[in-house]
């Protein structure tokens, strides 16, 4: 089998689930004849028909609510945000209507809200954000941020089969930049389980999504100095794989938390608190946080480059922790 890109892996995942289960349908803006802004659903309308690949008005609150309403009848909608930045237009529907439904009135909401997030493409303040933390904070939601093609496919399929609302943050920088061979057989990846991206004994980097590759580049540089980075790809930010977080800290005793979302109130703070609760005695150095600047995502390439976490940041912090 030829290698498959991250984007094609998501396409395959949704396609296979639609073929497997008549409950699954797609809903969103320009997902039909146009195939979606990034072409994730290209060709779907010809195969599955306009009943199951529904182009909507530009109305994110309606898209989320309609997906929720359909899920009440037993359907499993996969709703697309053209860019995840627009999830804020449906914030109320997600946190009040959808996330609380099972708790309040025993109404499970088996729906997937997916779309491209993240920067590095000069998308500017409204096409580059990482809004996952708002939702990781909300009880009742599962929040997924895959970093590899294999995980992207396995997790989108798991999200579609899950009985709960799953928010699936694809990283647009990765869409066509990474590819790998995928298993031939039907597979899913368990939601809530981290993945060991690279084993190492000296310093742990706990991260997810596109930052996995920033950590990987840093690891290659540090390996030449004899510093072995361990990279833990969380894959899911809600629920967090606390066991995997604690295990890597117990192994290396030094930890960097790296994410593309901005720093203040970001997930790194939460992960640091988890380490404090589960593995404080195993720390030989303070926990380091590397995240984007506390600013909107700037547009111009030099500005955005400065804004985003860099390989040098990881190298610098790893050296510091190693020497602590």
């Amino acid at each position: 089998m030829a290698p498959v890109t991250y984007l094609e892996a998501i396409r395959e995942g949704i396609w296979e689930e639609m073929e497997r289960d008549p409950a699954v349908f797609c809903i969103g803006e320009d997902i039909g004849v146009y195939g979606g802004a990034f072409k994730v659903t290209e060709g779907f309308i010809h195969h599955f028909g306009s009943e199951r690949v529904i182009d909507t008005p530009i109305a994110e609150a309606a898209i989320v609510s309609a997906a929720f309403g359909a899920s009440l009848t037993g359907m499993r909608p996969v709703a697309e945000f053209q860019f995840m930045d627009f999830i804020s237009c449906a914030h109320n529907q997600i946190i009040n209507m959808v996330a609380k439904a099972n708790y309040r009135w025993d109404a499970p909401a088996p729906l997937v809200l997916r779309g491209p997030s993240g920067g590095g493409v000069s998308g500017g303040p409204f096409h580059s954000q990482n809004p996952e933390t708002y939702y990781a904070h909300t009880p009742g939601l599962k929040v997924i941020c895959p970093a590899t093609a294999r995980d992207a496919k396995g997790l989108i399929k798991a999200a579609i089969r899950d009985n709960n609302p799953c928010l699936f943050f694809e990283h647009k920088f990765l869409y066509r930049r990474i590819k790998e061979e995928l298993p031939n057989e039907d597979y899913t990846v368990e939601i809530g389980k981290a993945r060991m991206h690279r084993e190492g004994r000296d310093v742990s980097v706990i991260t997810y999504a596109a930052m996995v590759y920033v950590a990987q580049e840093a690891a290659d540089i540090l390996a030449k100095e004899g510093i072995e980075l361990e990279i833990v790809d969380l894959r899911t930010v809600a629920p967090l794989d606390k066991e995997a977080i604690a295990n890597t800290v117990k192994k290396t005793n030094r930890v960097i938390i790296l994410h593309e979302d901005t720093k203040t109130g970001g997930l790194a703070g939460e992960i640091a608190a988890v380490i404090n609760e589960l593995a404080f005695d195993d720390l030989d150095a303070p926990i380091a946080r590397i995240a984007s600047l506390d600013t909107p995502v700037p547009f111009s390439p030099p500005l955005e480059k400065f804004f985003l976490p860099k390989v040098e940041d990881v190298v610098r912090e790893a050296r510091r922790l190693r020497a602590y």
Partner: peptide, 30 residues
């Protein structure tokens, strides 16, 4: 949802309208 087919409201107003549209959509798909 099962027997009496009633969607629970939330305090935010107007939000059941798109939900009910979705219920009708789900039923139509069925």
């Amino acid at each position: 949802k099962h027997k009496r087919h009633i969607a629970a409201p939330i305090s935010m107003l107007g939000d059941l309208i798109p939900v009910l549209a979705g219920v009708a959509l789900g039923a139509r798909l069925q």
